[in-house]
Amino acid sequence: MRASRYMLVFYASIIGVPLLLYLMLIADALGAQLVGRALLVLASLGLIAFGAMGFAEVWAHGPRESADVAVEPRRAAAIPVYHAERGGGGRRIVSFSVARFIGEKKAVEREAYRVEVDGHSTVLSALLSIKERQDQTLAIRYSCRMGICGSCGMVVNGKPVLACETNALKAAEGGEIDVEPMYGHPLLKDLVTDFDDFFERHVSVEPGRYRLDSREKYAAKEAYKQSREEIDRYLPYSYCISCGLCLDACPVVNSNPEFIGPQALSQAYRYHADSLDQRGEERLLSVDSLAGVWGCEFAGACSKVCPKGVDPAAAIQLLKGELMKDAVVGKKDK
């Protein structure tokens, strides 16, 4: 059976149980105790269906061994502070606690640094300053330094962010700046994570406009026109810079790496909503599984951290809506 048909029962129980309980409340309030109890028995069936399907949704992937990393106590900075504190110009020395993943030891070692920053410094520029002047072994990935390439994702003070868009002085307001790698991706070295898995997920949804006539792009007879409204259906979802912050934030990806994750799903929706894409139902069905859209529990953390306002959580709910509609009314051609 298609996952969306199975999930229809699940969602019917999520809506049905509260409705039945509420009707029971009204029946009780009106003194119709017998009706109330009958509704309660009906609700119990919904509760069992909800519980059993919820169990399958969360634990269908079975137990999974994750690599354990030891967290070593912090050691003192290897090299002393480069600058002494200077007054004026908003410059000040801030402390960093950097979690460095050491692959050979399978351990995270905390390293303390102090670095001078000003109002324009970002966490990335401060880390680069540490790398240039204090510790050349610190591994960081970055490229554009302006929030475009999506390379510098890391966890600053507990939140996945782009380091190049995070103001260092602001981050230091609570005291020390805490920097960690994105544990929602495999770890490579220090703050650098492995994105192979991320891009495989992305590619698996075939993120590109599919045309039935594959030769037409070489001999187009007319322009590919779209109205403003058609463009608006997918435009915000096309802002994705593949930074991977949403995967790092997603509690489902963190606990069940089989779930394809918010970025790939938002891109599946981006192309599904594109009037020029001709993959139609096939694209929808490719994510109709527990490892696809139905793995999403709608915690919404992905959308909270997305630096581009892609709102992957919304895209996934829209995909769920399309799939449920498709499961009820059948195949719909674009």
Binding site: R64, E65, S66, A67, D68, V69, F101, G103, E104, K106, A139, V155, N157, G158, K159, P160, Y183, G184, P186, L187, L188, K189, V192, T193, D194, D196, A249, P251, V252, V253, N254, S255, N256, P257, E297, F298, A299, G300, A301, K304, V305
Partner: peptide, 27 residues
Amino acid sequence: MGESIDTRGGEGRIARVLGFDTGAFVH
């Protein structure tokens, strides 16, 4: 850089959202 290590998996990992989204954790 060598082999990567995957620390994902295990229900305890849902607590990672606590650092920035308490609502998501409660959910």
